[in-house]
Write a protein that binds this DNA or RNA. Structure first.
Lengths: 288, 288
DNA sequence: GTCGATCATCACGCCAGACTATAGACCATC
DNA sequence: GATGGTCTATAGTCTGGCGTGATGATCGAC
């Protein structure tokens, strides 16, 4: 059997990617923790992390072991709960802000109110959602993806189009739908460079040779739409969003639709609350 | 985290229900093992076993912990397999002889031939199948039950009637079906007293006030039918059985049909080979 | 009542693991 | 490219926890 102290140490290490900080968290000396991880590595016979520049990163095997360790930890908590002692287990959901605000309201409300379930929510971007699931930090994740990831259980819940959100009196508000050329020389509210949505917009507008101007950079659909409503510019967002007062939305069919996936870790038992949450999340998309 | 050495010790203890023998199996002294189990009990805060007369038995909590420990052990083996090191995990199926002989042939053949799966079969009676699943000794079980058990995931696969098996030239072989009075003063091949099937027969025949004679007591449907074919008497068996050469079978509608259940431990992930085996078992019943 | 078997506890010795100290690796800055 | 800072990795020392042998406690069988 794999030594549980070593697994516990590896959880701390895998979460911090630093022997020093992980040791602090465990109230242990850094060498002690290092030896624990070394023993675990030796026991499993596979390198669990590698040096990359100044820092460290988990290998694929390390990610698998981290996820395994967290799973085992959760199972042990569940056992303690079943035996009547110990706290109730926590169910962790990772999703983007938009999904949390506009789609998952009903599932979250239902499970949060349930006795015996301790729900935690991680607001993460696409990469963060995937990382949270891969390492077992979350049991359920919802995010937009171009393709379902390997190593995770993914169910496509919906494909959503893009909408242009603008102040009610905007000149483009008279149109039924917005074509890309309509956006020429418009002031757009966009996320910072590097965010998937920004890159997507950049590419699409460049391909259509549409010149545009940056009104303001903002992160988070709620924020973007708020400034759009105030007349700062046009925000291109996902049509799961609920448009705020003072703004109107018009579809932009030329932008490729996004597929939303509900993700769980493989090996999830059907009786787990996480399975119920995943199913409710899918239903919430469908009922939209 | 629960100490894994203690869990491993508890597996040995739970399987032997003897500190002395479990300690031998682990190449450990009896006091050392006793302390391990005591520490585990203290950690979990619930008694895991109790004294009953001279021997010991597991409490419900103890059974749950034993099953949990075995599950965890299996998961760790699966992790090692996934990492490329370690042996392939074993899948344990517990079922009665008849089911194994006549129904599960195809599922067993398919999974046994699969690379990466190490199939083990436990031939057990009804109580043994249930015990093997409750304590995690088996992942999949198939048996006849009057009612699905609590604490286990049960799917009713089929309800089967009873047939009377007799030598081809037997006087009752001329009938299409056999009523209970037809069996009056016949010589029957029956299992020993205490077996569910024997008790069931005793009650049914007594209720119909049918006197009968015991030809021979035998355990196992294959054996019973063999002697029926040889003219020793009439064997009342389940209609899943394939009648041997030289014998004929006639339905006995008056005997209550049996419901066969495919059992798995709750919390089984859908990707587990055990889930596939369970589904194939259900399909095998339906395809009969 | 006595004996045999097995669980449960005690006292002692020893090794796994934790700690301090320090060498090694890597990057940043000058 | 030299220096210093930060963090990982290793060596040596020591202590607490675990295993062992001895023995008490308990139950059933004869």
């Amino acid at each position: 059997m794999i030594d549980s102290d070593r697994l516990r140490s590896f959880i701390a290490f895998g979460e911090t990617l630093s022997f020093t900080r992980a040791a602090e968290r465990l109230h242990l000396s850094q060498p002690a923790l290092h030896v624990q991880v070394a023993r675990l590595t030796e026991d499993l016979g596979v390198p669990l992390y590698r040096r990359v520049g100044r820092g460290l990163e988990l290998t694929d095997a390390g990610q698998a072991v981290l996820a395994f360790a967290r799973d085992q930890d959760r199972r042990q908590q569940a056992l303690r709960t079943a035996l009547g002692t110990g706290p109730r287990p926590t169910l962790v959901l990772a999703a983007g802000e938009g999904v949390l605000l506009y789609v998952l309201t009903d599932p979250v409300r239902r499970l949060a109110g349930r006795a015996g379930i301790d729900l935690r929510i991680l607001t993460r971007d696409q990469a963060g959602v995937l990382a949270a699931l891969r390492t077992g930090a979350a049991q359920v994740g919802v995010t937009a993806l171009t393709a379902p990831p390997e190593e995770l259980h993914a169910v496509k819940a919906a494909t959503t189009g893009m909408i242009a959100v603008m102040a009610r009196g905007h000149r483009l508000a008279r149109r039924r739908t917005i074509a890309l050329p309509d956006l020429a020389d418009e002031r757009l509210i966009v996320p910072p460079v590097g965010r998937p949505h920004r890159d997507h917009l950049d590419r699409a507008l460049a391909a259509a040779q549409v010149p545009w101007e940056r009104a303001v950079e903002a992160t988070g659909w709620e924020v973007m739409m708020r400034y759009a409503a105030l007349g700062v510019g046009i925000a291109i967002v996902n049509d799961i969003c609920i448009v705020p007062r003072g703004a109107v939305a018009r579809p932009v069919p030329a932008l490729a639709p996004l597929a939303y996936y509900v993700l769980t870790r493989p090996g999830l038992p059907a009786e787990d609350p996480a399975s119920e949450l995943a199913e409710r999340a899918i239903a919430a998309f469908r009922a939209r």
